[in-house]
């Protein structure tokens, strides 16, 4: 009798144990408290121009619009990578992880060029309380995305080297939670900072 073909790794009944998912969820919640603090700081500083430029003068809404679209697409492709993971299709998983990485990198580069042009125009973070709070809030989000990119790169290497072992699957699932969470924070940033800023 031919034995049933088995996968080369032990398949857990759940991709990530409920305790681990919940622990990561607690981290995300504490992270959202940090962002709430930065939003509160920004909201109370948002009119302190100190004679410097206002949001209406320096914000470029088209950059923000494309940044939003890029980050939202990367959230979708991150979801696609989890779908490929659930079907244990490694090449497809790597493909969607690479696309997610490129979109995330595009977002970070757009944000970098935005910051660069702001500082070039003399609207750097030392110009006014408004700009300090703006750079702190948006920069913290950008830093999160950059760290997420490093995490994603490490996970791609692990998928190639170790295959879809149980720990790798669990890490990938938690990475997807982190990535979706960052897009959620961005919704707050583009609505409260940019859209209200240019009105």
């Amino acid at each position: 009798m031919i034995p049933e073909p088995s996968l080369p790794f032990p398949v857990p009944t759940e991709i990530c144990s409920p305790a681990k998912t919940f622990g990561f969820w607690i981290y995300l919640m504490s992270d959202s408290v940090i962002f709430a603090l930065l939003f509160a700081t920004y909201a109370s500083m948002s009119r302190n121009y100190a004679g410097g430029p206002t949001g209406k003068e320096v914000f470029d809404l088209s950059t923000v619009f494309y940044e939003t679209l890029v980050l939202l697409s990367s959230t979708l492709t991150c979801g696609f990578s989890i779908l490929s993971l659930s079907k244990a299709k490694t090449p497809r998983l790597l493909f969607w992880m690479a696309i997610t990485f490129l979109l995330g990198l595009g977002f970070v580069l757009m944000e970098y060029s935005e910051f660069h042009s702001l500082i070039w125009q003399g609207a750097g973070l030392d110009r006014s309380g408004f700009l300090s709070a703006f750079f702190t809030l948006v920069g913290t989000h950008g830093l999160h995305v950059s760290i997420g990119l490093v995490w994603l790169l490490v996970m791609m290497v692990q998928v190639v080297q170790k295959g879809l072992t149980a720990p790798v699957q669990s890490r990938l699932y938690r990475f997807s939670l982190f990535w979706h969470f960052l897009d959620l924070v961005w919704v707050g940033i583009f609505s409260m900072v940019y859209l209200l800023g240019v009105l």
């Binding site: 857990p12 991709i15 939003t68 679209l69 939202l72 979801g79 244990a88 879809l164």
Partner: peptide, 26 residues
């Protein structure tokens, strides 16, 4: 054997509807 339990297996339709709703609101 499936890598996901039945309850938390993600669906393509879930991600797509989320994406289009989010896009519409944006």
């Amino acid at each position: 054997m499936k890598p996901f339990s039945i309850e938390n297996r993600p669906e393509l339709a879930t991600y797509l509807s989320g994406f289009f709703l989010a896009l519409l609101l944006t």
